[in-house]
Design a binder for these strands. Sequence first.
RNA 1: UUAGCAGGCCACCUUAUCGCUGCAAGUAUGGGCAACCGUGCUUGGAGAGGAAAGUCCGGACACCAAAGUGCAGCAUAGCGGGUAACGCCCGUCCGCCGUGAGGCGAGGACCAGUGCAACAGAAAGCAAGUACAGUUCGGCUGUAGUGAAAUCGGCAAACUCUAUGCGGUGAAACGCCAUGUAAACCAACGUUUGAGGGUUGCACGCCCGAGUUGGAGGGUAGGCGGUUGGAACACUUGGGUAACCAUUUGUCUAGAUAAAUGAUAAGGAUAUACAGAAUCCGGCUUAUGGCCUGCUUUUAAU
RNA 2: GGCCGCGUGGCGCAACUGAAUAGCGCAUCUGAUUACGGCUCAGAAGGUUGCAGGUUUGAAUCCUGCCGCGGUCA
Length: 150
Amino acid sequence: MLEENTDSKKTESSLKSPQGGALNFSFPKKEKLTNKKLFEALFTEGKSLREFPLKLIYLKTDFKEKVPIKVAVVAPKKKFKTAVQRNRIKRLLREAYRLNKPLIFNNIEGNYAFIFLYLGKKTPSFDEVDSAMKKLLGTFLNKEFHEKID
RNA sequence: UUAGCAGGCCACCUUAUCGCUGCAAGUAUGGGCAACCGUGCUUGGAGAGGAAAGUCCGGACACCAAAGUGCAGCAUAGCGGGUAACGCCCGUCCGCCGUGAGGCGAGGACCAGUGCAACAGAAAGCAAGUACAGUUCGGCUGUAGUGAAAUCGGCAAACUCUAUGCGGUGAAACGCCAUGUAAACCAACGUUUGAGGGUUGCACGCCCGAGUUGGAGGGUAGGCGGUUGGAACACUUGGGUAACCAUUUGUCUAGAUAAAUGAUAAGGAUAUACAGAAUCCGGCUUAUGGCCUGCUUUUAAU
RNA sequence: GGCCGCGUGGCGCAACUGAAUAGCGCAUCUGAUUACGGCUCAGAAGGUUGCAGGUUUGAAUCCUGCCGCGGUCA
């Protein structure tokens, strides 16, 4: 089932998938993580993966909304003092996630909450964030998804 | 052109694709007698700043069931004007700085009272008195020496006085809805002869008042309104030295809530400073790229 | 978003009612003592008082503006 989906990513059949479509690059409000309790749970119980300059904290949960993943993005205030820098980083992370969504959206079962942390010291370019995001999502899939199959 | 002074303006732009947040219209669907409301899709149009910042002043607005009186406290300080108001702005006098264009100034009062003055110096504020000279011979006058200041005063960004102003708390204000033990249990005090609470730091006064406080144990920390049309912006004419005021016509110009402006490609120039609204305005201060205009000096370099 | 508080040698503090030399403890360095080290004793170095202005004869202290850090709220 899942392998078929990855193979037929760019075909028309996957566009009609009930989960929102493989080529759906949208990032609506539903897919944002807003619950305070979930945040706390993530920081205490969540597992983490690193791919410099990014860090992913994730946790398997259930939501009321029919969305597979909820995502939040963090830029630390200690390293980046101005709001402009923090906004810039958060926008880049969000954009990178949005464009790489199809990598994981069709290969996942259940609900996950994600937090992306930025660990670098300087404001990055989009290419850096994008490549790191791709690697990070790949390792996430390998860990969670293949371990379960085995 | 370089240096300096003052004032004003702009804040990379255009197109395409993908994406985000409100608004309007249409449409599908669910609910409702209906008005409408929720969700999805499509189209159209809008979407951070000159400082949005610091939170340093001044207001609007909201609440405090008296928001009252007195004391305390705080702020301002030539004079005149502007303003909703101000510690802001304009004009002007004076003082200081600069060759100059110009800039800066908490700039009332020590003949109301209290206080302060290290070192040096004979003496630093009930006075006392060195040396020399002069002399109308009166411990009268001058000079020297110390010091910021020597019988003349100085210092109120010393207490203070004078004049004027200020009630307090800030959108996490405040109103409504939802959720949930729970009109649960134990102890103390009390029900008009009043426990306790509210009311500005204190006192008085005033108001509310049948519950309040503590223990043990537990619940929610969500949604809607406030929330963007305003001391608004642009322009016409008139008044005023100016700040500004009056007036004509026109425009609608962000409303997020883990928090909306980004990515990619192409072109103009190849590079883009400081920096992100959070209730809203008027200022001040600080950060910062570039352009334009007028003026100043020696006429120094071309 | 609002409201408070604090900045003094490397660290923790004092001097804040203006007075010329900014003090104390720990740590550091040098010497003495010891076979060596510690303890102890003697001595030394280390400060733009967070920064910049102002008032004053004189500022860590008073005033103004910045910078940094911390706390608090329904």
